[in-house]
Each structure stands twice: as C-alpha cells, then as structure tokens.
Design a binder for these strands. Structure first.
Lengths: 169, 169
DNA sequence: CCTCCATCGTTGACGACCTCCACGATACCG
DNA sequence: CGGTATCGTGGAGGTCGTCAACGATGGAGG
C-alpha cells in the first residue's frame, strides 16, 4: 500500500475532465468572438430562446450550475446587446422572465453553427457514435451529482414544481 | 430549412463537459482542503513526485495546459509549504527541476486517497467499466486537440505533428 | 388583517484563475 | 562572435466562483 501511485494523473478522471473542458470551452469561446459572445452568454441566450414564455433567472442559475448573482450580470450584458429582455411575470412579481428578442433568436442560430464549428476542432477525434457515448456518460455523471453543484442553490432540493409546464393560461 | 435547434443545450458536449468538470473539481477541491491543497497544486505535486529527477516547469505547464506564469505561482506555494523544492538542472542552467520533498511524497499519498474519495461522489453513477470508457474518450479528445490548449505554448507544437497517424496500440 | 419566514433578483466584496506582454539569464546555431 | 530561441519570472487586466447581505414580494398561520 506504500507506493500506490494514485494514477499517472493523465488517467485521473477529474484531470481529464477539466482539461477537456478547458480545451473545448476555449475553442468555442474563440469561435464565438465573431458574435461578441462568450460561452456563458451563449448558453443563457439558448435557454432564453428555447423557452417560449421566457425563463426565470432562478431556473437559469439552476440549469447552468451558476450562482444567481452571475446570472444577473450575464443577462445584463445580453440585454444591453439587445439579444434578450426581462419581462415581468404575470404570476409572481418577484421573478423576471428572460426572453430572447427576434434579433436574439437570429444571433442564437448563427452562433449555434459557429460554436459547433469551433468545438468541432477538439472533437475531431470522436465520431458520432463516440460523441453520443460521451454524452451518455456525462449525462449520467451529472444526473447522479451527489454534491450540490450550484453554489447559490441552497436548499433548492428536489423536483422543480413544474418548470416546463405549459403556462396553463 | 428546418428550425435547426442547435440542441437543448443539455445535449451539447461542451456544456456537459464544462458542467461535469466543474462538479468534479469542486468536490475534489472540497476534499483537498483537509490537506491545504487545491486541485491545481495537487496536480503539480503528483507530477513532481512521479518524476524521479524532478520535472521542468516548462513540462509542468505543458502537461497541465497552463500558462508558465501560473506554474511559477503554484510551485511557489508548494515550495513555501515544504512539499516540493526547485533544484538546478545539471545540464541547463535556465531550467529548474521541481522535485517533491519526502514530506511532499507523504502528503501526495494521503491526498491521493482523499481526492479520489471526494471525486467519488459525483462519479458514483459510473461503474469501473464506464469510467474506463470515459477515460478512453477523453484521452482521445485531448490527443487530437487540433487547437493549442496551453496559452503559453507558443509554437511549442512539435510532439505530435502527425494527427492521429496510427492510433494503434 | 397582520406577522413571520422563504424566495427572487440584485449588489458588493474577495480570491482563484486565465491571457497576454515584457524582461533577464541562458542555450544554441551559424 | 552575433542573432535567435527558450526557461523562469513578474505584472497588468479581465473573467469566473463563492459568499454575505439587502429590498421586494409571496405564502402560511394566527
């Protein structure tokens, strides 16, 4: 038990994960400059554009695994660029629904291609099947995240009441 | 054409990668506090301990994908804690070999267990076979990193000019 | 109705991390 | 010998992660 070389480090999953993440994120960021976006902002834009009625900043922070305070800044920037806007919720005056503007949707589409293109570089070594496999594994990893990943998510445990439920009326 | 919804975002490899990386790194960091280390420092310690004669800071930056200036700080901290020391190279007076001290090796062993333990939480959902598979995929991804991942690595390309010449093994 | 408490968004602070640029010392090539 | 490249280092500037606190609101209970 003495020697017990944990691993050559290059076999450590944490190391590989953070390294791979860095490479892909860097490549994606580099590609997105052309749209004046960073991955974080792009992610918010995508989520806002995909939610017909807009998405709560709380949910944004939840899905992205970010502190709510960071979401504020991201939305601020996107709003300043005219890509999203904050709308008041008709049911809860505390929350603000973040929705993509028409121009936001345009940018989102263009950026999606650019981003996929940029990330394509580092991912060149993996074919479709392997990417799907990787998605599967990572998805499982995140699903069973025993530890809270979002700092600001105190107590926010369990099932979201009815996040994606259709706005009944 | 079709609407071409890039993806639900939760299916984007870049997103999953960065999310997973964050979760694992956070858990590992939390576990390592007990040794007064962060993942970065731990990585340097491992590499230094595994190299019998010590390792160049240049190589450190290369392997870790960091800017050389960051390596300086990491080594400074580890040296201040008495876990590693900088030795002059006998062949090149410019380089300094980073080697682990006896105490550094002890800490490294203990920390290895602690770290693996901490990372075990998020990884709970994956069995040995799946982890190996994940390692395989991530390793391949990093091996074919078309873009330079280490910022400070200007021109330092070299090593693997042949893109996946013969990935046999 | 009124009070206590949870939640949402927001702000501010602080430290960790990333990226780039420049420098002195040294090695190496011709 | 001169010119160029590399190693370690320092510093500036920006992004990101984490935490604590606050006003505004919602909701439960008396």
């Amino acid at each position: 038990m003495e020697v017990l070389m944990g691993q050559p480090l290059t076999d450590d999953l944490g190391f590989l994960l953070s390294r791979a993440s860095g490479v892909v994120v860097r490549a994606t960021n580099a590609a997105l400059v052309e749209h004046g976006l960073r991955v974080r902002q792009y992610s918010v834009l995508v989520l806002a554009a995909d939610a017909a009625e807009g998405i709560t900043q709380r949910e944004l922070a939840d899905v992205l695994g970010l502190d709510p305070s960071q979401v504020v800044l991201l939305v601020d920037e996107l709003a300043a660029s005219g890509l999203v806007e904050r709308r008041p919720s008709s049911t809860d005056r505390r929350t603000k629904l973040v929705a993509a503007t028409p121009r936001g949707r345009e940018v989102r589409s263009a950026a999606a291609r650019t981003a996929a293109d940029g990330a394509g570089g580092p991912l060149a070594g993996l074919d479709q099947a392997e990417r799907a496999q990787l998605r599967e594994l990572l998805g499982r990893l995140l699903a069973t995240g025993g530890a809270p990943d979002a700092p600001g998510s105190r107590g926010r445990s369990g099932s979201a009441p009815r996040t994606g439920a259709e706005p009944e009326r």
